[in-house]
Design a binder for these strands. Structure first.
Lengths: 159, 159
DNA sequence: TATATGCCCATGCTATCCCATAAATACCCA
DNA sequence: TGGGTATTTATGGGATAGCATGGGCATATA
């Protein structure tokens, strides 16, 4: 599972070290030394951030799209947004990737970025923007403690 | 279950010995020599303390988030709060961990800390703050002992 | 020829491994 | 029950490996 928040820096060539802990999660998803070493990334639908994950995430998204009516407009639109703007970024020998310009632009990233674990996926933020989002998210979570409680209660019922 | 209170010290390298009793609880949760040896920790939402637990705790969080709509903003915000601030700390050969600076800062810990068992999870406190908190908690518990009485009465009826 | 992209190696720093010590606890056997 | 011995635990510190980062050099691309 992806967790924690780590800040990394873009070097003169536009490269970024993907945090080792995050790479470890990716590696655990790969089917045993398949050389499948890299991440999938795409712009967030709702936030000024980049979202990404490993093979599992892409397979989940794929499965979701597959559940929609094959000839519906929604399906085509969703598939286009999801896959059309997605990139597979391969690690170099030292675990670094180069983020495509459109993604950097979407997340307003210039020199530094935060990798934020979200469990099944992660996000990449411009540090200042993430600080603001995080403060907001924390406040919202606190206000919605009742929702949290009902979620954990529902979970118990479900078992 | 996590119980009792133990005080430990940060050494020159920032390491802390996790109390043996607490490690034993973690070990009992791990699926038989899986090497899964470590704790999950995150800042408490409401207290100036660190909270933590074993694998079980994280799986519960995961299950909560999974109940929300995959592309909803609430889900991302909650996941960011829950997982973005969480850390997996692996034990070294001697059962020690290094607490990340953000967590130490949140709990205002500098040299010493208390591990406090809370049943399904535990907390880590700066010793003085914990003493104050405990005094307060005792007072509250005393005031609410009628509630406890009614609870145990209700339980008896339910059986 | 200039600009990018991938591959490889160099470096400082930090986390991790490993061993040593001392105290505390558990264990054993008379 | 007492006294002594073995384990385990908490802590300190040296050595090492891994990580994030920078930069050189070849190879593609325009």
């Amino acid at each position: 599972m992806f967790m924690s928040t780590v800040t990394a820096k873009i070097d003169a060539k536009g490269r970024v070290s993907v945090p080792a802990a995050l790479r470890a999660v990716i590696a655990s998803q790969a089917p045993e030394a398949s050389g499948q070493t890299g991440i999938f990334v795409y712009p967030s639908f709702t936030l000024e951030a980049i979202e990404g994950g490993g093979r599992d995430l892409m397979q989940n998204l794929n499965a979701m799209v597959d559940q929609l009516d094959p000839f519906s407009e929604e399906r085509d639109a969703l598939a286009a947004s999801l896959f059309g703007d997605s990139y597979h970024l391969a690690f170099d020998a030292d675990g670094r990737v180069s983020l495509p310009e459109p993604l950097l632009h979407h997340a307003v990233i210039t020199t530094h970025m935060c990798f934020v674990g979200l469990g099944e996926k992660f996000q990449i933020w411009e540090p200042d923007r993430f600080a603001a989002f995080r403060a907001d998210a924390r406040r919202t979570a606190l206000e919605n403690r009742n929702l949290l409680r009902s979620l954990s209660a529902g979970q118990r019922e479900g078992q």
